[in-house]
Design a protein around this nucleic acid. Structure first.
Length: 505
RNA sequence: GGCGCGUUGGUCAAUCGGCUAAGACGCCUCCCUUUCACGGAGGAAUGACGGGUUCGACUCCCGUACGUGCUACCA
């Protein structure tokens, strides 16, 4: 049987890094087994629908290089891939469940349910559930006669279809990461399967679609584990038990400090991205920063996520996507949640910047220079010269500007005090003569520049250390950057002379 | 509160009964470098707790604690 997996997000906002990791694990599993990876949009909650979110999710997957084989955009043999477009389909299965007695119709209003929750609460901390203990008290097809039910439906009374959870039945589920997990069916309430608006809830929709789309392995976040028994029962009641996918509930990604699931707010608070790409909330106009825009390379982002909860068992940490496809195994996914560490994420990016070819890096860096200098306002050829000089000093893509801006324009001197420290006539003389000598250099190379510099030193009774740092500050503005003479070589004679002369006054 | 899941250094984590408990990030020291980095060499830092089982438990079992998730006509 062909392996088929799916990523099923609901289009309600930015794509969380945990979501991307779920996509990754799905993708790796599918590729490793020669299977299909499908993207299914779970947009059954019309009240939470956010315009643009679906397109945004696909853009994120594209940036990550984790493209689905089947999706709303691409189509496929099991289309449509948007649950809202499959709406009519689910009712048929709800009816089937109704007919077999595994589900029932309920007419209760939100207020009535709320009242029941309070009136029948067991203690102060918990509200009663709509379940085997309380369903007999409510207005539903279990307490009403068939005639009464029909009259209400005919009269247009809104209703939902709920699953009738059995009492005290032990439900066992095999999870690829956790092994056997068991539940007591009485713990779960009679979940709504079909809502009053005719849309299915997640519970009905996942089961129906996973079956119809022939999904063989279902990976999702650990937060779904408590409702898994409901899904297992549904597979059974619908008569599809033999086709139920193998489950894997992925550990959660936690906040770096305190406790709890990592959320967008933590990123804002702690100063790091949580979403894959910038997300503009159409309702509030608020922009949430993404890893892409913060200057991460997609390869590094993916590698970092792969290692958050999984490891190969070896000491290797840097893996290409192809290597991950080869080595990843869902069984080696850690069971416990992992706290997100932004420092480690940056380290991965640094590793990738170091190992990425200068040509490819130039493509990635170009947009940042365009943004700083304006498109067409700078010499593209410079990029290939400076990248090898500064890449070792860069962790995120914007660092290329921070580390290389002085190649493009005369820098502001930010370390003037350091530069002037111990300044005297000797130094003034030295630089004046060196600058004058520059014109007669046989070739403008860093070696030639350094030689002429060195030769002049004893003439003025100076040591190299006395004047090298001042020269650096003249050229770059601060105490950083690649070798000074290499910088001078790149910016050229005219600019070098100009920067030194400006300081000499 | 109930139920599920989890628990090895600050963080990510290896270990599938033999441990003097890997490795990485971060931190500290030193070397390299007359800048900043890269790189190299070191260092500090770990099995939640209590019972079993066993010749031997980080590894298996039970309990406790702690963490986390769920407990919606949200996913």
């Amino acid at each position: 049987m062909k392996v088929r997996v799916r990523f099923a997000p609901s289009p309600t906002g930015g794509l969380h890094l945990g979501g991307v990791r779920t996509v990754l694990y799905n993708y790796l599993f599918a590729r490793a087994h020669g299977g299909d990876f499908v993207l299914r949009i779970e947009d059954t909650d019309q009240t939470r629908y956010v315009a643009g979110a679906e397109q945004y999710i696909m853009d994120c997957l594209r940036w990550c290089g984790l493209n689905p084989d089947e999706s709303p955009e691409k189509g496929g043999p099991y289309a449509p891939y948007r649950q809202s477009e499959r709406k009519q389909l689910y009712r048929e299965y709800a009816e089937k469940l109704l007919a077999s007695g595994h589900a029932y119709i309920a007419f209760d209003t939100a207020e009535e349910i709320e009242k029941m929750r309070k009136d029948h609460r067991i203690d102060e901390h918990s509200h009663a559930q709509y379940d085997s203990r309380t369903r007999g008290l409510m207005v539903n097809s279990l307490t009403l006669t068939p005639e009464e039910v029909n009259t209400r439906i005919a009269g247009g009374t809104p209703y939902v279809v709920r699953i009738k959870m059995p009492e005290h039945q032990t439900i066992t589920l095999h999870d690829m990461i956790r092994g056997e997990v068991t539940f007591d069916s009485s713990q779960s309430d009679d979940k709504v399967l079909l809502k009053a608006d005719g849309m299915p809830t997640y519970h009905l929709a996942v089961v129906v679609d996973d079956y119809l789309m022939k999904i063989t392995h279902a990976f999702r976040g650990e937060e779904w584990l408590p409702s898994a028994p409901v899904h297992v029962l549904l597979w059974e009641y619908l008569g599809w038990k033999a086709h139920m996918p193998q489950w894997a509930h992925l550990p959660l990604i936690l906040k770096p400090d305190g406790n709890g699931k990592l959320s967008k707010r933590d990123g804002d608070r702690l100063g790091f991205p949580v979403f894959a790409m910038n997300w503009l909330d159409p309702k509030t106009g608020e922009i949430t920063k993404g890893f892409k825009e913060m200057g991460f390379l997609p390869e590094a982002f993916i590698n970092m996520l792969a290692m958050l909860g999984w490891n190969s068992g070896s000491e290797q940490e840097v893996f290409s996507l192809d290597e991950l496809v080869q080595k990843f195994s869902i069984e080696r996914v850690h069971k416990g949640g992992a706290k997100f560490d932004f420092e480690k994420a940056k380290w991965f990016n640094q590793q990738y910047i170091h190992k990425t070819s200068n040509e490819l890096l130039a493509d990635r860096v170009k947009p940042y220079l365009d943004a700083e200098l304006g498109i067409g306002n700078w010499e593209l050829g410079l990029l290939s010269k400076i990248i090898p000089l500064i890449k070792d000093r860069c962790t995120l893509l914007p660092d290329f500007w921070a580390q290389g801006h002085f190649f493009f324009s005369t820098p502001e001197i930010k370390e003037e005090e350091t530069m002037r420290k111990g300044w005297n006539d000797q130094k003034q003389q030295f630089f004046t003569e060196w600058v004058a000598a520059l014109g007669s250099l046989s070739s403008w190379t860093h070696d030639a520049l350094e030689n002429s510099f060195n030769e002049l030193l004893p003439v003025h009774n100076l040591k190299k250390g006395d004047v090298l740092l001042p020269l650096r500050i003249m050229l770059v503005g601060g105490k950083y950057g690649p070798g000074v003479f290499a910088i001078a070589e790149v910016i050229g004679m005219e600019e070098t002379v100009k920067r030194v002369n400006w300081v000499l006054g």
